[in-house]
Structure formats: structure tokens, C-alpha cells
Design a protein around this nucleic acid. Structure first.
Lengths: 217, 217
DNA sequence: TAGATTGTTAATCGATTAACAATC
DNA sequence: TAGATTGTTAATCGATTAACAATC
């Protein structure tokens, strides 16, 4: 392991898969797992799993395997999901509302601590336990909450401006649901979730599968 | 170009980015673009863009560039999003409801043609223009609609069973929002959308950025 | 034609996986 | 100790990008 090594993004993405898997096996009362188990149950190659972990230290015992609870706790700590973390959400439309109502986020340590919108109709209304705030106060609001992560569920046309405000308020990571390419400083991490892209990929693969099926008839 | 060549997944994923970009520039009244424009505006390397397209044929004129409208139409056709396509949704919870209310999907050709749930409370209720149907009739429903794409917004514990039913009904692609690893035949395409993973990656990157910031203080 | 940009080949880069020495 | 599995190195595989001949 090396403190300063750059961790590949695919490795980072797999960490949460491992975490989920560890929670599953723990719920089943299993205390020790092997990298071979991970491969069998998640589809991730066993060497891949060991290599991924090696970026962060040593986690297993040769000849024995991995302690489920310990591995779980250490991965949670690496991802900083071992404690609650305030997150700000901008855009109280359908999707934003769904995310607030999604219990999975809080269960994983992400607390939506503030909700903002620009619609006079929505401002002041309650949404779950929160009151929708005027986007005009976004910057102060984020600073006060100390949120370093923002969720963007606004129309594409507003995404860049709001993202800029978030960055001014010292947000360092943005989960972007708006179908827009955000231009932000290099030290800001952006994750795009783009439903149309997912469906378009499916659409391509499905049509290709049908083509191949026809051909073999 | 070669009819039988396997298109890399990253290429496929970028196609919808290109499509979005082309719609943007078309709305601005631009008729021709260069691969260099794509790089400037989307961040995708110009050679990457040209290489991606080369899997599907020739699209531009050397010395001139690409016709926006033509390129748009041809990519839409490759992705099979040039015409409406029925999609079935299972799980009428918060997220499912949000997706049904999301106008972006229909605008891109994906019509949610059937909604299913297992909750007696929900079955029979209206949701948008549709009535929530009993999941018991899922298989027949999918066959009747002719849906080849399914959206799964159910709890993880039910995901595998429902996915199996979808496949029995000849669904070929599944957009899976359930935090579960689906085990399906190799010819079925699955795209996982996993919010916690996205947030966990952000969480890691944010904490790392803060670490580096502290060190340089 | 001269200038410009494509499509494609070749070089580079990075991620995955196989193999094995270290170690429990 | 013998057997088993890890952590890590080396080999493979695939994707990105630079370079350039083809072509408008």
C-alpha cells in the first residue's frame, strides 16, 4: 500500500459493491469470507477483489480469508460512510422528492440536511421533515450546514449556475441528475446519473440481441 | 466499419452524450460541427469521438466536419431511440413514481406502457395516465405490451424474482435500481443504477480532497 | 489547387487477471 | 508441518489518444 497512490475509479466503484455484499453475508451470520466467495457471489474476479483492497492496506489472513465485520468497517471508513454526513439537495421536483423519501440514503449515512428550489410555489412547503428553502439562500445554507456533497435535480438549463454556487459554498462533490455537462474546477468531483443514457444503452443492446436472434433462425 | 464488431461499452455510453450535445447545438441553430467542437464542449477527446463513430460507419466529410441533423438522426437510429418504445416498470414506490413523472423519458422515445406492484393498497390506483396492475399478471402484461425493456424499482429482496419473470416474458434489457446483483442469462443486458455507490464515490473523493487541502496548509 | 478535417492505424496508457511467493 | 489463501508481481487485455494518409 502507498498513501499517495491514485486509486482507479473502477476500484472505487467496486468498494460499495463489496460493502453491500459484506452486509448481505453478515446478515446471513457468516463471519469469514474468501476472495473466491466474492467472485462466486458478485461476479467480481477474485484477484480483482484482492487487488482493489491492496490499494488501501492488508485486510485478510493468508490461508484463512477475511473477517466480515472488520472488512466491512474498514471499507465503510475508507468511503467515509461510517458516520452521518450532511448533503444538500437542489431541485424539489419529482426526482428530488423521490430521493428525499428514499430511506436507503440515510441508512448509508447520507443525511439530506437541506432542500432548495426556485419555485415560489414550493418555497416554504414542507417535504418530509424539511422545509423547502429559497434557492437565493443556497450559498449561506450550504455553508451553515457544512455540506460538502450536493445533489442536483434541476433542469439542465439551471444546472451549471447552481453547481457554481455550490462550489462557492465549498461543496467538493456533486451528484448530477441534470442532463448537462458541468464545467467545474478540477478538484471538484462530479458523478453524472443520466437515465436516458442507461436506457439508450439498453435499447441498443436489445435491438442488437434481436438482430442476432433473427439471424440464427 | 464492420457489421459484426463488438462495440466497447464506453463507446456506447458516449453515444447518448453525443446525441445530447447535437440536440444542444441544433437548438442553437448550428448546422455543422467538427470533432474539435465536441472536445471543447463535452470534454470527450476529438480522436475518441471519431473513433467511436467509426464503429458504425462514416459520418463526416474530411475538411468540412459533420452535419448536425444527419449525425443526430443516425445516432438516434443506432440507439433505436428514433421511435417510441414500450417499457414496463415494476415497483410503484417513490422512485418508480418519479420516473413515471419524468418527462425526459417519453421525450426520448421511452414510453412507460405498464406499471406493476404487489401492494394491494397500490393495485388499481391511478398513476399518471396509468393504472397500477397486480404483479401477478406481470408476465402476461409484458407479453401483451411487447416490452423488451423493464425498469426495476423494487426492494432488493424481490429484484431477482421479478427479473426472472421479466426474462420469461422476453424482456432483453433491465434497468435495475434495486441494490442487488441480478443473476440472469448472458444474453440479457442489465444496467445497474445505484445511488449509494455514486454518493460513496463522492464521499471518498471529498474526504481525500480535504486531506490534501489540509496537508498543503 | 491548397487548406482543413476526417477515418484509421499505431503507440500509449491503464485496468484486469493469471501466477506465485509470502504467510497464516 | 502441510494445506490453503492472501498480497503482489508480471502478463494480458482493452481502451484512449496521437499521428497521418485519405479525402473533401
Amino acid at each position: 500500500m502507498n498513501e499517495n497512490i491514485k486509486v482507479p475509479m473502477p476500484t472505487l466503484e467496486r468498494l460499495s459493491t463489496y460493502l453491500r455484499y459484506l452486509q448481505d453475508v453478515q446478515a446471513r451470520g457468516v463471519h469469514t469470507i474468501l476472495s473466491a466467495d466474492v467472485e462466486r457471489d458478485t461476479g467480481v474476479n477474485a484477484a480483482q477483489f484482492r487487488k482493489d483492497l491492496s490499494f488501501f492496506g492488508e485486510f485478510g489472513k493468508p490461508g484463512v480469508g477475511y473477517n466480515v465485520l472488520e472488512l466491512q468497517q474498514r471499507i465503510a471508513r475508507i468511503l467515509q460512510v461510517h458516520r452521518e454526513q450532511p448533503v444538500v439537495l437542489v431541485g424539489a421536483g419529482n426526482l428530488g422528492t423521490a430521493l428525499i423519501g428514499y430511506p436507503g440514503l440515510r441508512r448509508h449515512g447520507f443525511v439530506i440536511a437541506g432542500v432548495f428550489d426556485n419555485s415560489p410555489k414550493k418555497i416554504g412547503q414542507r417535504l418530509g421533515e424539511m422545509e423547502i428553502q429559497d434557492i437565493q439562500y443556497l450559498k449561506e445554507g450550504i455553508v451553515k450546514l457544512g455540506a460538502k456533497i450536493g445533489i442536483l435535480t434541476v433542469p439542465a438549463s439551471e444546472a451549471q449556475t447552481i453547481a457554481n454556487t455550490m462550489v462557492e459554498a465549498d461543496v467538493k462533490g456533486i451528484l448530477n441528475f441534470a442532463p448537462a455537462t458541468l464545467r467545474l474546477p478540477a478538484d471538484i468531483t462530479v458523478r453524472d446519473v443520466y437515465f436516458f443514457q442507461e436506457l439508450a444503452v439498453l435499447s441498443y443492446c436489445v435491438s442488437r440481441a434481436e438482430l442476432l436472434a433473427e439471424r440464427s433462425e
